Amino acid sequence: DEEIEKWIETLLKRNISLRVNGKDLEIGSEEFKEWVEKFIKEV
């Protein structure tokens, strides 16, 4: 979905790490990609 890709790009540009389930996810890491894929499937 384009919306999500733009959102991810924005996050990448800002180099933010997300806190997911109490863990810091490094943007661009494998864990982050897995989380994004799960997130996309749920939406």
Score class of each variant (00 low, 15 high):
16 I>N: 03
9 E>M: 02
8 I>L: 15
16 I>T: 06
34 E>F: 09
20 V>T: 05
6 K>P: 02
38 K>R: 12
13 K>Q: 14
17 S>N: 10
31 E>L: 08
18 L>M: 07
38 K>I: 07
21 N>Q: 10
10 T>D: 15
7 W>I: 06
2 E>F: 15
43 V>K: 06
38 K>T: 08
31 E>G: 08
39 F>G: 01
2 E>Y: 13
17 S>A: 09
14 R>V: 14
36 V>D: 00
38 K>F: 07
27 I>F: 12
8 I>V: 06
24 D>E: 13
1 D>L: 15
31 E>C: 09
17 S>Q: 12
13 K>I: 09
17 S>E: 09
5 E>I: 14
37 E>N: 06
11 L>R: 00
32 F>M: 03
31 E>N: 08
13 K>A: 14
13 K>T: 07
9 E>R: 00
24 D>S: 10
4 I>E: 03
33 K>H: 12
5 E>D: 11
11 L>Y: 01
22 G>R: 01
37 E>T: 09
41 K>M: 06
2 E>A: 12
25 L>M: 08
10 T>P: 01
41 K>L: 05
23 K>W: 07
33 K>P: 01
22 G>C: 10
10 T>W: 12
37 E>W: 05
43 V>G: 04
34 E>W: 08
33 K>E: 05
2 E>W: 14
41 K>G: 04
5 E>R: 14
32 F>G: 02
28 G>P: 05
34 E>C: 08
13 K>M: 09
15 N>P: 06
34 E>Y: 10
23 K>T: 06
42 E>K: 09
2 E>D: 13
1 D>V: 11
32 F>E: 00
35 W>Q: 01
25 L>E: 01
23 K>R: 11
5 E>L: 15
39 F>Q: 04
4 I>C: 15
41 K>I: 06
6 K>Q: 08
6 K>D: 10
43 V>E: 05
33 K>L: 14
27 I>V: 11
3 E>D: 13
15 N>V: 14
12 L>P: 02
33 K>G: 02
42 E>I: 13
27 I>W: 09
39 F>W: 10
3 E>M: 12
20 V>K: 03
33 K>Q: 10
17 S>H: 11
16 I>H: 01
4 I>M: 08
1 D>H: 13
25 L>V: 09
18 L>Q: 01
28 G>A: 07
39 F>T: 04
43 V>W: 13
24 D>R: 09
5 E>P: 10
6 K>H: 11
3 E>R: 12
11 L>D: 01
28 G>K: 03
26 E>M: 11
33 K>M: 11
32 F>Q: 01
18 L>R: 01
36 V>R: 02
28 G>C: 09
18 L>I: 14
30 E>L: 12
3 E>Q: 11
35 W>E: 01
22 G>D: 05
5 E>G: 07
27 I>K: 05
14 R>D: 14
9 E>Q: 03
20 V>I: 10
41 K>Y: 04
25 L>F: 10
15 N>Q: 07
10 T>I: 15
17 S>V: 12
20 V>R: 03
25 L>N: 02
16 I>G: 13
11 L>N: 01
3 E>H: 13
40 I>S: 02
36 V>N: 00
12 L>C: 06
5 E>N: 13
11 L>K: 00
8 I>W: 12
18 L>P: 04
43 V>Y: 14
40 I>F: 13
20 V>N: 03
14 R>N: 15
13 K>W: 02
12 L>W: 00
33 K>D: 05
1 D>P: 12
42 E>A: 11
37 E>V: 08
29 S>Q: 04
8 I>E: 02
26 E>G: 09
37 E>S: 07
15 N>E: 09
20 V>Y: 02
